[in-house]
């Protein structure tokens, strides 16, 4: 099998960086996330051992703000001069299984059901994902309960940390094979074994929850669960699979551009309508919509949950809302109570 020695990682990244923008999990100042491997960042600590970084790689394929096209208005004339699909080659190094699953859900949203989003597609078609298998799930992790195999990230290449022997390098796709050939000089052949995966500290049972939720839209449980939520939207911004966006414009006089930016279903303006109406007028309805989207609606539409079990929303929530508690509560409650 192919092995990437740990002391070769920097050199390998250096080599890939000659052909592509490389993103790696790093700690920079107080934050951690996937940052570009640039001269400035190179001496920052790589976080390949840490379980998951604070910010997911979502923004690399779906930037928080993305310029779409340039507009010019002159008198009655209107023109679109340039669109900004970005097809630069990119490599994301060290993606955990939960975040790789989130990329699959972004793929399903942006690339299927009648329309392919050209901005997402340009980035997606030119990205290579190198996964990093997990063997010791963290305190807030529950990906397995959500149908994710922690040791098999859905990626082009999978790295498996075999301790002192280095990383086992397993190519999974043609894109992965291509990259493997390009970095062959840093890989050597050696037999070793990936560790056994440890068991999860957070135990959740999601089985049957999506189905059970079908009849629970009006359940009093929502009011109770939403009570602490202040609708700040932090959980939606940090979530690797939340994909909602707004479309806005920036104009200076006669020229400018239209862009999209992440939006949050936790905000009232998100669904406000003419005449002051809003189908989700209070925080409870917005809270319910978010968690039903994660736990029921998406799986009705695409066949699996939109929550990957990464645990990030639990960490950021200022009000102590835990999606795992929500799943448990739904699992346990009598679905007909109060209806």
């Amino acid at each position: 099998m192919k092995i990437l020695a740990k002391d070769k990682v920097a050199e390998l990244l250096e080599k890939i960086a000659q052909q592509a923008e490389v993103y790696v999990p790093m700690a920079i100042e107080q934050g951690s996330g996937f940052y570009p491997w640039t001269e400035d960042n190179k001496n920052q600590p790589l976080l390949l051992d840490a379980l998951n970084v604070y910010n997911s790689p979502k923004y690399i394929l779906f930037p928080q703000t993305e310029r779409m096209y340039d507009l010019k208005q002159q008198g009655q004339d209107l023109s679109i001069d340039q669109t900004h699909e970005d097809s630069s080659p990119r490599v994301i190094f060290g993606v955990r299984a939960c975040d790789a699953r989130a990329l699959r859900s972004l793929d399903d949203v942006f690339l299927t059901r009648g329309f392919e989003d050209s901005f997402y597609k340009a980035r997606r078609d030119n990205v290579t994902v190198i996964g990093n298998a997990c063997y010791a799930p963290g305190a807030n992790c529950f990906c397995e309960a959500m149908g994710v195999d922690l040791t098999e990230p859905e990626a082009d290449v999978i790295l498996r940390d075999a301790g002192n022997d280095g990383y086992i390098w397993e190519s999974k796709t043609e894109t992965g094979d291509k990259l493997t050939r390009a970095v062959a000089e840093f890989l050597n052949d050696k037999e070793t074994k990936a560790p056994e995966a440890k068991s999860f500290q957070t135990q959740v049972d999601y089985d049957g929850v999506a189905e059970k939720l079908k009849g629970m839209f009006e359940h009093p449980l929502w009011e109770k669960m939403a009570e602490p939520c202040v609708n700040c939207g932090a959980c939606t911004y940090i979530c690797p699979s939340c994909h909602c966006f707004d479309i806005q414009v920036k104009m200076w006089g006669d020229s400018g551009y239209r862009f999209r930016c992440w939006d949050s279903c936790m905000y009232a303006e998100y669904s406000a309508e003419a005449g002051g109406g809003n189908p989700r007028p209070s925080g409870v309805e917005r809270f319910r919509n978010r968690f039903l989207h994660k736990l029921e609606f998406f799986s009705e539409r695409y066949g699996y949950s939109l929550c990957t079990g990464c645990g990030r929303c639990t960490i950021v929530c200022p009000a102590g809302v835990r999606i795992t508690d929500i799943i448990k509560a739904i699992k346990e409650v009598d679905s007909s109570v109060g209806l």
């Binding site: 949203v109 059901r113 009648g114 989003d117 994909h243 966006f245 479309i247 939006d263 029921e296 009705e300």
Partner: peptide, 15 residues
């Protein structure tokens, strides 16, 4: 509505 193509998430009723 914003996107019109089932991506921006805004106009959902259930799934």
């Amino acid at each position: 509505m914003k996107c019109g193509i089932g991506k921006c998430g805004r106009c959902n009723i259930g799934s």
